[in-house]
Design a binder for these strands. Structure first.
Lengths: 341, 341
DNA sequence: TGGAGTCCCGGGAGCGCTCCCGGGACCGCT
DNA sequence: AGCGGTCCCGGGAGCGCTCCCGGGACTCCA
C-alpha cells in the first residue's frame, strides 16, 4: 500500500499542501510543523510519486544519453567509458537519473527515434558521436527537444561541449616537425565527423605553417578502431613515413602494433604522436605522446549545460570548449625519465 | 502546445476514451473509427504522455540497470560492454527504456539507493556484479522491488540469470590436467562473489577428482583486473607452476604479460586456460583457450525474465542458467590450425 | 413485439502531485 | 479602532491518462 502526500499529511496532522511545501523546501511552513512532517516522512519512508510530479511539473529529472549505432567499438574505446563516467557523476550529483539509448543498427535507430524524442519522461538529451548532417539531430531540432551535443555540431543552433581539436592536432604535428621529421603522415578520424575535420585542419595548418607539402596518400582515414589504425599505419609505412600524427589513441594502439609487425621501431624509425590521452604510459610501448583532452570533464559539463538550459528555460545555443594539452612521453622521440629514447 | 488524448479525439470526431482504446489496441472500436483515429495520430505526430500513463497504470516502461561501485574496471572489462549490449537489445525490442545507475564510490552508492529503489519511475531492476550479502540486494528484497540478478544470488528468494561457472571451471581444469600438467595453479575471481566461489569449487572438484592435492599458495585471488592477473601469475611463477587456470579473460591478459616479462613461454613453459570467452583469438598471443559463456544472451534473458515477472505480477523466484563451453585454442598447449604449438 | 445479447461509444472518477487562491492569526502603524 | 502587511495553512482545480459504467443501436430469437 503506497503512501501519498495526503496520508503523510494525515499522520502529521497537516494538509497535503503543507507536506508538499516541506518536501519542495518552500517557504510558508513554521519550523515546528516542518520538523514534524520531516519526521513522519523519515519514519514512514515516504517517497513522492515521481510520475505524478512529472505529470504536473513536466520535469522528470531524467536525462537521456544517446549514442548512435555507428559507434560499434563503444565499449572497446576507453573514450566512451570515461565520458559516461563523467556524465553519471554529474547526473548523480544533480539528482538526475540517466537513461541510456544505444542501438544495434541503423534500422533500430530509426525505429526508436520517436520513442526517444517524444518519450515524455525525458527532460533533455545528451547526444554524442553523431556524424555530420545526422538525421537524429535534425529531428531533435525540429521537435525543439532540449539537448546538448558532445563534439562540434554542424549547425549554430545547437548547444555543445567540445575540446580544442584543431589546435591540439596542430600542436601535435608541430611537435613532430620540431623533431626534424621529414616525411610525416597522418591517420585521421572519419571525415564525416566534425572531430575528423577539425583534427585534419589542425594537421594541415601545422604543415602549411612550416612550409611542408602534404603529398598524396600522406593522410589516411580511420574509424576510431584499432584495426583501422593498424591498417592505416601499414599503408603509411609503405610510403616511407618517419613520423605519424594519429588522430586517436585507440587507432594509435593499432598503429604501434603495425610498426612492430613490420619490424620497425617507434620512435627510432617512426615517431608517433596521438590524440586523446586515454591510456596511461604503461599501457603502450613506447609510452604514447598524445594530445590530452579532459573527457570526464566534458561529460560533466554536458550534464551541467543541459541542466542550465532546462532551468533557465532558455535554449539559445551555448557552448563550452575545453583546452587540450600535449602530454609528452616517448613515442615522439623525446627522452623520458627512465625510458629509452 | 502539447497534444492530448482529448484533442486528438476532437480532431478525429470521437471521444478521449475511443482514442485511448485505439492506442492501447483494445476492442470496442469499429474499423472505420480506428483507421480515422490512427490517421490523425499519424498526421499530428501525437505521442501519449508517458508520465500520465505511468501515474494511472503504475507502469513506466523503464527498467533500471544497477552496477555497484566496486566495479572499477567497468569499461575496461569487455564483459560489461557485451552485457549492456544484450540488455539494451532486449530492452529496445520490448519497447522499454533503460536507466543506468553507476556509482563513483560506496558513499555515493548508499546515498543514492533510495532514489534508485523508490524512484517510482522504474518498473524493475537488473542488478549485476554484487558481492555476497550486498546491502543493496537486501534493501531491494525488503522493499519488494521487482528485480533480477545477473550471477548467482546468495539467497533463494531472488530471481537470477547465471552461467555454469562451476562445471565450466571444472572442464577447464580437467583439460589442463589432460595435458599432463604437473603443477597447476589458479588465479580466481574474488571469493566475496558467488562467481568466485563457484569457479573455485569447479577448480577444486577437478583437482580432487584427479587425485591432485592443492598445495598452499596454488590459488591466488584476483579482482577481475589485468593488474591482478599479472600480480597473480607472478606469484604463481615463483611457485614453479606449469599450468594455470585463470578465472577470467581480463585477468588472463595480465597473466600472459607476466609470463612474457618473466621470459617464459605460453604454452611451452606454462599452459593457460581462462574463463569468459571475451576476446577473439587474435587479441592474445597465444590465442586463449577459454571457457566461453554467452554474455549477450545473459543480458537479454535478464530483461526478458524481468518483464515476465512484471507482466505475470508473480515474483516467485525464477532462474535460468546458461551452459558454458570450452573453446580450445592454443594457450593450453593444443595444436591450432596455423598456430605454433 | 419484446427481451437478451453484442457492438460501439462517451463521460465521470480518480491516479498523486503542484499551483493558486483565500482566509485566519498576528504584527505594527496611523 | 481600523488598516495593510506578513506568516501559515487548507482546499480546489487540474496535469493527461486509464478504467469503469451506462446507454444507444442493432441483431437474433422466442
Amino acid at each position: 500500500m503506497r503512501l501519498t502526500l495526503e496520508k503523510i499529511g494525515e499522520l502529521a496532522g497537516v494538509s497535503r499542501s503543507t507536506v508538499s511545501r516541506v518536501i519542495n523546501d518552500q517557504r510558508d511552513v513554521s519550523e515546528e510543523v516542518r520538523t514534524r512532517v520531516l519526521e513522519t516522512i523519515e519514519r514512514t519512508g515516504y517517497r513522492p510519486n515521481q510520475a505524478a510530479r512529472t505529470l504536473v511539473s513536466s520535469r522528470s529529472q531524467v536525462l537521456g544519453l544517446v549514442i548512435p549505432s555507428s559507434v560499434h567499438n563503444l565499449f572497446a574505446d576507453p573514450y566512451f567509458g570515461r565520458l559516461i563516467q563523467g556524465i553519471t557523476k554529474a547526473a548523480n550529483r544533480a539528482e538526475q537519473t540517466l537513461s541510456l539509448f544505444l542501438f544495434e543498427d541503423e534500422r533500430e535507430e530509426l525505429d526508436l527515434y520517436p520513442r526517444v524524442i517524444a518519450n515524455g519522461l525525458l527532460d533533455g538529451l545528451i547526444v554524442t558521436a553523431t556524424k555530420m548532417a545526422d538525421p537524429l539531430v535534425q529531428r531533435l531540432l525540429d521537435d525543439d527537444t532540449n539537448f546538448v551535443m558532445i563534439g562540434r555540431p554542424d549547425s549554430n543552433r545547437i548547444s555543445f561541449v567540445n575540446v580544442e581539436n584543431e589546435s591540439g592536432a596542430r600542436m601535435a604535428t608541430l611537435h613532430l616537425l620540431g623533431h626534424g621529421a621529414a616525411n610525416i603522415g597522418a591517420i585521421l578520424p572519419p571525415s564525416s565527423t566534425t572531430t575528423g575535420i577539425d583534427r585534419r585542419s589542425g594537421f594541415l595548418s601545422a604543415m602549411n605553417e612550416s612550409g611542408r607539402a602534404v603529398p598524396e596518400g600522406a593522410i589516411v582515414e580511420g574509424d576510431f578502431t584499432e584495426e583501422s589504425g593498424y591498417e592505416g599505419m601499414s599503408r603509411l609505412i609503405s610510403q616511407g613515413v618517419d613520423a605519424v600524427f594519429c588522430g586517436s589513441d585507440t587507432m594509435a594502439m593499432g598503429a604501434l602494433q603495425a610498426l612492430i609487425d613490420a619490424g620497425l621501431h617507434c620512435p627510432g624509425d617512426v615517431r608517433v604522436v596521438s590524440f586523446d590521452g586515454l591510456f596511461d604510459p604503461r599501457q603502450t610501448d613506447p609510452p604514447l605522446t598524445t594530445v590530452s583532452q579532459p573527457v570526464r570533464q566534458t561529460g560533466e559539463e554536458a550534464v551541467n549545460m543541459l541542466l542550465e538550459i532546462l532551468n533557465d528555460g532558455d535554449s539559445t545555443p551555448r557552448s563550452r570548449i575545453f583546452p587540450t594539452e600535449l602530454t609528452i612521453r616517448s613515442s615522439c622521440g623525446c627522452p623520458e625519465p627512465g625510458g629509452s629514447v
